[in-house]
Nucleic acid binder design. Structure first.
Lengths: 199, 199
DNA sequence: CGCCAAGTGGACGGTATCGTCCGCTTACCC
DNA sequence: GGGTAAGCGGACGATACCGTCCACTTGGCG
């Protein structure tokens, strides 16, 4: 049944607060902190989102949709290599700018039954993205779909530093993925070891 | 003053237990768990290692020394590029096989005053390693020392999966670091998303 | 052997987070 | 405008971990 107007607004406030809190303190931030930031009681939070993962899932639903859209865009690109690169870049940028998204992504993607079908679709799309770029002779033949996950994980570490570090890492990786040749990199990034959040 | 014989043995047992516990449960494992695994009381643990970081530091002192040695070896290699690669490979392999080491490394390296000098020496060595490889024309000119940290962080994510994933990532990265050309990769790795420990 | 300082273990109070319960408030339908 | 069910918030008991304190044990020297 539909939520009452005030409840619906509170729900949105909670989701926003959760994203902010995750960005600031990582995904293990106490539920009470999120509730306080949203200006609601903990009970309200727990009523809407019974488990921590439920909240995380909903909080990043939009970001996840953005990733799926990026994949579709990449597949639609007439240039298979450009499509491939843009998918990798966009997803990694998302990881780096929306702190906590990656943890959410990795934590729940395995099980969460509701998304099994969406996940299968995504995997199929990724496989096509890779095959297409390889058939065009732009992506090295020994690249596998699993390497995409490897990129996600690698980027996870770099994302903790900031989008610049992530961009540079991705640029390095894409160059090694390309069949031959190299190209200039984004500027070097000063790494502040102190400010890394435990990914 | 010197430790009593039984105390010395307990100390070793604690360090071993700590490494095991870190590998299994990550670096945030409760102190009591380590104590139990070592077969000692918590008081004993706290007396030897007053803070969590003190324990972590000592537990991985050997691994850290190994890294420093790897750097020296790399610098001693007559082939600057081979020396560069071996340092990167060895350090990353250490991260991947000794779970928890990276967290230790990153967590405390910034402050921990006692190691300031050792750290400075390491940084100087790394700078020389990079410069040497560049002057030999084997390492791209736009590579910076900070990129080495970037590699460490990127590897951190891959290391959570296992040494194979780490090796493949490092191979990719080293190829993009090299002034020109590519080479075959280690075999592809099946990534078990379920078994990733929060790095 | 006997002393005693070094060493030990577990109990304990303190703190943080969890998730639920219950009495009060309020949106919305009539 | 009034009734009612949906919604609310904060208090509360449970749980986990921390780090200390203290009464007991034991290695090793004289």
């Amino acid at each position: 049944m539909a939520l009452r107007a005030d409840a619906r607004e509170n729900r949105e406030r909670i989701l926003t607060a959760a994203r902010e809190a995750y960005a600031l303190h990582g995904i293990d931030v106490p539920m009470a902190t999120i509730a306080r930031r949203a200006g609601v009681g903990v009970a309200t939070l727990y009523r809407r989102f019974p488990t921590r993962t439920a909240l995380v899932t909903e909080a990043f639903a939009e970001q996840l949709a953005h990733c799926v859209a990026a994949l579709d865009d990449g597949l639609a690109d007439p240039d298979p290599w450009r499509g491939f690169c843009s998918v990798v870049e966009q997803v990694c940028l998302m990881q780096a700018s929306e702190r906590g998204f990656t943890q959410a992504f990795l934590t729940q993607f395995p099980d969460h039954a509701g998304y099994a079908e969406e996940r299968a679709r995504a995997e199929e799309g990724l496989a096509r993205l890779v095959r297409r770029a390889q058939e065009a002779g732009r992506l090295r033949r020994d690249f596998t779909v699993d390497d995409l996950t490897l990129v996600i994980l690698a980027n996870c570490g770099a994302a903790g530093v900031g989008p610049d570090a992530s961009r540079r890492l991705v640029a390095y990786l894409l160059q090694s993925f390309r069949a031959p040749a190299t190209a200039p990199l984004p500027p070097s990034v000063r790494l502040e070891l102190d400010r890394i959040v435990a990914p």
